[in-house]
Structures are given as C-alpha cells and as structure tokens.
Design a binder for these strands. Structure first.
Lengths: 232, 232, 232, 232
DNA sequence: CATGAATGAGCTTTCATTCAT
DNA sequence: CATGAATGAAAGCTCATTCAT
C-alpha cells in the first residue's frame, strides 16, 4: 500500500541508473535519502517528536514525495524500523567466528554486540520508541519476520563447541546468553543519561565503558562455565 | 507532598486535610491529581506525544491549573520524573534484608528489582523518554540529586557479609552487581514488544518471566561466588 | 509585489495573472490581501493588541497561511512596516516640483507631507507602535534600508534654488526643514485625540486643520527666508 | 466605581499613617506603589502589552489589590494617565519666567518643554498609547478636565510682553507657539527610533539633541519676531 | 515524478478576572 | 484589607496531510 514504483518494475519507470530525459528522477536514491534522514529524525525525536517538515527540509526532495513513497508518517517509520533491523541482521550475519576456541569466540560476540549498540545509538532509540508504542509497527511489517537473528545461531554454535570441548556446561540456552549480552549492552547505552545522573559519574567515559565491557565478559564466562560455582 | 489522598479515601470525598464542604480549593489534592494523571499520560505517549489537554481532561481541574502549578509541559514532566524516582527510592529504602544469609539476600534483591520494573511499567517508559531527551530534564531537577540509591547500599552490605563469610569473592563492586540486575530486569521489560516479535515468542508470559528471573539469579550467583570458574 | 489587484479590479474576480478558474492558488494575491488587512489591524490595535485571528477572519485565507507566508506575528508586522515605508517613499518620489519658484515649491512640500499624514493615519499609528517597541523591527528589515527619503532630496533642491535666487538664507539644512515639517504634521495628527481633550477644541475640524497648515507654511517661510517676506 | 476607600474617609479605615493593629495596611502607599509600577509597565508595553501579573509582581501587593483599588486594567490606565498629566501640569505651573526679557523667556520655555519630554519618555509613550485608543480613556476622566495648561498661559504672557516691547508681532497665538514647540520636541523624542533608522544617524546623541534644540529656538524666534532679528 | 500552496484540527500557553477564606 | 487558588476564553502557533498544476 505504500511503495508504488520500485526497482521491481522493469518497464514503466527506467529510474535508478542514467535515465533518458527526466532530470533528477532517481526514485531509489530519493527513497534512500528520505530513509536516511528519517532514521536520524525519528531516532533523535521519537515518533511523535519527529517532524515530516524537518525530514523533508533535510532532503533534496519535498514533503510530497515522502507521502508518495511511504504513504504516511507511520509508513515511513515502519520502513525505518525495517531498515535498522536489516542492518543489524546483516552485521550479525557477517560475524565470522572461530568456534574452535569457544571462550575467545564468546568474547568476540560480546564485543560485537556492545560495540554495535555503542556505534548505532539510533538503533537503541528507535527500538525504545517502538516499544513505547507497544510494538505496533513492527508487527505490521512483513519483512521484519524474515530476520533470523544470526547472533543467536552463532552463540548456539559456540555453546555446542564449548560443551563438546568440556569447557561449558550443557544446560544453558543460546537465547538466554544472547539476552544477557544484549541486556547489559543495551541498558548501559540506552540509559546512559539517567544512569550518569543517578550514579553521579560519567558512564560514557571510555574507561567506564571498557570496565563495563570486561565485567560483562567475565559475567558471561561465569554463566557458561562448568563446573558451576558451588552455591548450595 | 505529592501522593496525597485519592479515590483510596476511606470515605467518599471530603478531600484532604480538615476541610468540610469545600469543593475546589485544595492545592495539595489538585497537584497530586495532576501528577498522577500526567505520569500515566507521559508514560503512555512520551513527552511529545503526551497532550496537556488529555491530562487536564482526566482531572477534576482545568488545563489552566496545570500551568498555574507546573509552569509548562516540561516543568510538569520534570516533577513527574522526580516523583517516580522518589517512589523507587522510597521502595528501595524499605527493602529489609537479612545480610546474615547473603545468597538469600541477593536473591531477594533480584526479586525486588525485577518485580519493581514489572509492576511499574511507567517507570521504564518514563526513563526511556528522559533518555531520548538526553537527560535534559533530570539535570534541571534539584531534588533528583537527593536520591541515594539505597539498593546499591544494600547490595554493598550483602557483598561485604558474603565476603566475610567466605562465600563471595572480594573483587567485585556493588555498583556492577546493581547494574547487572537492573540491566537484565529493565531490558527484558522495556523491550518486551520488540523482543517478542524478534524471538517469535511471548516474552511476557508468566512462565517466560519466571524462567528469566531464575536465569538472572543464577547469573548473579555465579558472578559473586568464589571460587570463580576456572576459565584460563 | 505587494499591492496587487483587489476589489478595485475592473472586472469581478479573475484574480491576478492569467489564470482563469482557479479559486485559491494565487500566492501574490493571498499575501497582498493578508498585508492589507494586517496593516489595518496593526494600525488600529497596535502590535500586541492586534489579533491574528481577526486578521485571518477578514481575509479569504486562513490563519495558517499567515504563518506560511510570514512566519510569525512579528514577521508580519515587519512586512507591514516595510510596506508603509515603501508606499510613503513611492509617494514622495512622485512629487514633481518646480524649483524655479522656491517658495511655492516649499509650500507644496508642506501640503504634501501634512496631507500624507492626514490621509494615512495608519502610517502614523504604525510608526508609533514601532517606536513603542524601540524600533526593534525596522532594524531587522533589510529592505527598509533601501529607502532614500526623496522628500529630503526635494527640499534640498528647493533650498539650493532659493539661495541662488537670493530668496533663502544659506545656512540651513534640508534635513532640519524636513524634520520641522514632519514634526508639525505628525504631532498634530498623532496626538489629535489628547490634544483635542487638552485644548478643549476639536483639532480635527477642517477649519482648524487649515489654520494649522497655514501656520506651518508661514513658519517654514520664516525659517528659510532672509530677510523674511513681509507677508502680513 | 473604582476607588473604594481613600484618604477621604476619616473613619472606617485609619490607614495611611501609623495604624493601630493591622500590619501593612497603608492604602495610600499601596496605591501609590501600584501607580508607579503601572506607569512604567504601560509606558513600556502599551495598554494591551502591559500585564496585570507583571505589575502585581513588581509590587509588594497582590494582583487582587489592583482590582480592589482600580477596578480593572482600564481603570488603572486611566489613573496612570491622570497622574502623568497632573505631573506635567504641576511642572509647568512651577515655571517661573521673567517676561521682561521676552526672547530669553521664550528660550526658557523651549528648553523646559523639550527637556520635559526628554526626561519623561513614559509621558510620551503613554500619550501615544492613549491616542492609539483614540483618547477614549482621557475623556472618561473627570480630573483631566481640571488641568489648565499653564505653559500656554505663560507663553501668552511672554507674547504680550514682547508685543508691548515692540519685539514681537501681534498676530500670533500662544496656542500655536505652544503647539509648535510641543510638536518639535515631542516628535523628535517619540519617533527617535524610526527617525534614527530612517536618517541613518543617531538622533539621540547629545550633540544632535543640542543642535535640534537650537534650531527649534531659532525657529520660534523667527515665528514671533517682526521684524525678524538680524541674526546671520 | 515533482512542487508550492493550502488547510483543519489541535497544540501549548497566556490573560484579565473572580472566588473562597 | 489581603491572599492564594481557580478559571473560561482565547491567543499565537504547529502538525500531518492533500490539492492543483
């Protein structure tokens, strides 16, 4: 209902590349530009705080085109969500990890996840925004269902390798380990402003970030290791 | 001064204090009512999404009174933030914990924190909203600086007791343990909608919640226990 | 660009330009209409007393368009100021005066200035309003700097001619003569209500106006002349 | 309808001086304070721009008292007008001038009037405000009718003395001379901001003011004299 | 494909004024 | 005399969206 003419239409609109007569008609580029700008605006201001005017102004196109391509503010937001999800999925999919050294592999995963949040603050705020709206947009997205969470699969492989090497305990799920890593990384990033005020320290300082990361790694190691601590 | 007498009054409506018949002039009640309603609205819609009209409509007062008492939408939001922070602080301060059994005590803290987030979803969304705005309101609040995070102090005492009983390792800070607990509880609650969509399961189901809680408890135990797992 | 076609149109309403049937999209006309109405409202009520609602209501457009074109109430006021300044400038520029008869020419200038204030009461109140605000809007206007006060130039030429004919004294500036004429005309018009109350007479009566005008002409003659003409 | 209890009420409210039991009850002082503050506010912002809240805040009393004493915003404005008129009248009445030297006396009057406007900018803006409202408040004032414009009387005496000394021509009215002086002084002061912008010079500079004043004196001399003084 | 003009509904905020005590 | 609480009406301004070309 919202994307009329895409690249999936070989006839009818020789867009994209070097078209024939029209001047700036490059729908693919236009849509991409809108999406980029919208991602920043939504991440910066939230869904209700974002302004269609502001997005249009930061673009080489006009407000009208946003409606032409995305139908509505919500339609645009949905595509923004899809985009950032896909990007994270793609990044996870490129995680190349040597499961023959499970502990090292786990450490790499922690690094990846925590760094990803840190380097993509818009991912964090956009997810928060979507959760504020009780996930109503992501469930409307068909494409969102395609994402396979490669990171969980990776962790799964690592855990299996660790178990078979006698390093890890067996009764633990990749899902839980993933959630643990995600939680520690996400929370630290998402709540950095209120945490800094609350704790009276600058949570964002490189030293603090590094210390937290090593604490998380240590925690994850303790979670997967066998023998388990002898707590009664 | 902020959560006075609501509908929870023993009798019907001879509002607060010793007045008998007056219908209006009860500033304490008026302010409290505004704050209560505003907390819900801001938690539900965010700062920009919240509507002063909606808040006023859900109140026995008028829009005008909101500005009389709170000056602006932002002023109201700041007081809402202060209120929820104070409430959490008060709740933490009432944590009565027997440090003579450190593991049990830790478990109780985890229960408390995770339950608190679960039972106060508005706390979670309001903090997210404040972080979306980069913490600009909480730093304006003078009162916010008075909060002492009793939970961290409690954890501190527990850790010390555990160490002196030879149960816990010594090189761990109460701050990190607190953040670990908070992160796992907060993230699970805050992101429950996107997580449910992403994982393809209902994260909110009582069983899932219980399983996560026990995973967190297990994780915390492993973090504090000595001897540490023998990872090289 | 600012006073286009109004009700003074020869035919009925095929508004401006070459359009035939369109009812709305005529920005030039829309802006001009807003400016005309706003000039009256600001002149009548002052800057703070003027109501955007009232301006919009007296227009075929909506309040929204005022903000679309002028950005804010102050922005609109600035353009109103520019407009009335330009109009006076244009009027002065069309003063065709024969300097070969300097006394007659001076008299014509006095007539022009005093008549201009009298026939443009909005010019007087708008300038008063701007001065109440300490000239903060006119300094923001770039266009206002282009106005060249043709009247002073005209007086300058008259004075030079008068001197070379041996009629006028030489040590007098066009600026001072202009200010003298402006002061007498402006004050009489601007303060007509309080003056009438204060003097107990109707300053506005045609006879009073005529008498004042001849007094001013006499005064100006005396100021420039050496020796003064022995007119009884 | 607007001043309930004044000093004209010997019984009923032993206010003013050192009262018996009540604390700050000094209606005379309170009213005077309100009037002073209101004069500044109205002069600074105009009638519609002035804020009752602002006036009350700058006072030791409350908003309620303004209504108690003056009835309404307009009632307060009327009394402010009366006050400044009375003050000018009083100042004029104290003009002591030696009519035996008519030219010197005239010069003193010019100095007085121009200096009065210069030192009482609020007088100028308040009159402008009243004229914006077409003098509707001053006509409501009974007291305003008592003012006798002593300055005109003074000029009248000077002119008569000058005529009898053979210095001045006889066919000139004190009213016109007064208006001429007032116009030049008032206009220069009232329009100083727009004039400065329009002329591209700082009309307010002491040198410019002095030059204008001597031009006005010269003009007045020329107006009254017959034969004109042969000042080169 | 693209654009500038237009819009109705609703937003936050302000104001002079009055009520209850 | 005095005060803090309360208020209805309306102010200036903004928003997502659509129309005409």
């Amino acid at each position: 209902m919202n994307q009329p003419v895409h690249s999936s239409d070989p006839l009818l609109s020789p867009s994209s590349g070097a078209s024939v007569s029209s001047r700036t008609n490059d729908p693919v580029r236009t849509m991409a530009e809108i999406l980029t700008v919208a991602t920043h605006e939504f991440a910066d201001k939230g869904l209700t705080g974002a302004r269609i005017d502001a997005i249009a102004a930061a673009t080489r196109t006009s407000k009208r085109m946003i409606y032409y391509y995305f139908g509505s503010k919500e339609g645009l937001f949905i595509e923004v969500l899809e985009t950032i999800y896909r990007r994270m999925n793609d990044a996870e999919a490129q995680l190349v990890i040597d499961v023959s050294t499970p502990l090292l592999a786990l450490e790499q995963v922690v690094h990846f996840v925590l760094d990803y949040y840190r380097h993509h603050p818009e991912f964090v705020t956009l997810l928060n925004t979507e959760n504020l709206h009780k996930g109503k947009h992501i469930v409307k997205s068909l494409r969102a269902r395609e994402f396979s969470s490669p990171a969980i699969a990776v962790i799964h492989d690592i855990l299996r390798a660790g178990v078979s090497q006698g390093l890890f305990r067996a009764d633990i799920s990749a899902r839980d380990v993933y959630l643990l890593i995600a939680a520690t990384g996400y929370f630290y990033m998402s709540n950095r402003y209120t945490l800094s005020a609350f704790l009276g320290e600058n949570i964002d300082a490189p030293q603090a970030v590094a210390q937290w990361k090593s604490f998380v790694i240590d925690t994850v190691f303790r979670v997967v290791n066998v023998p388990p601590p002898s707590h009664p």
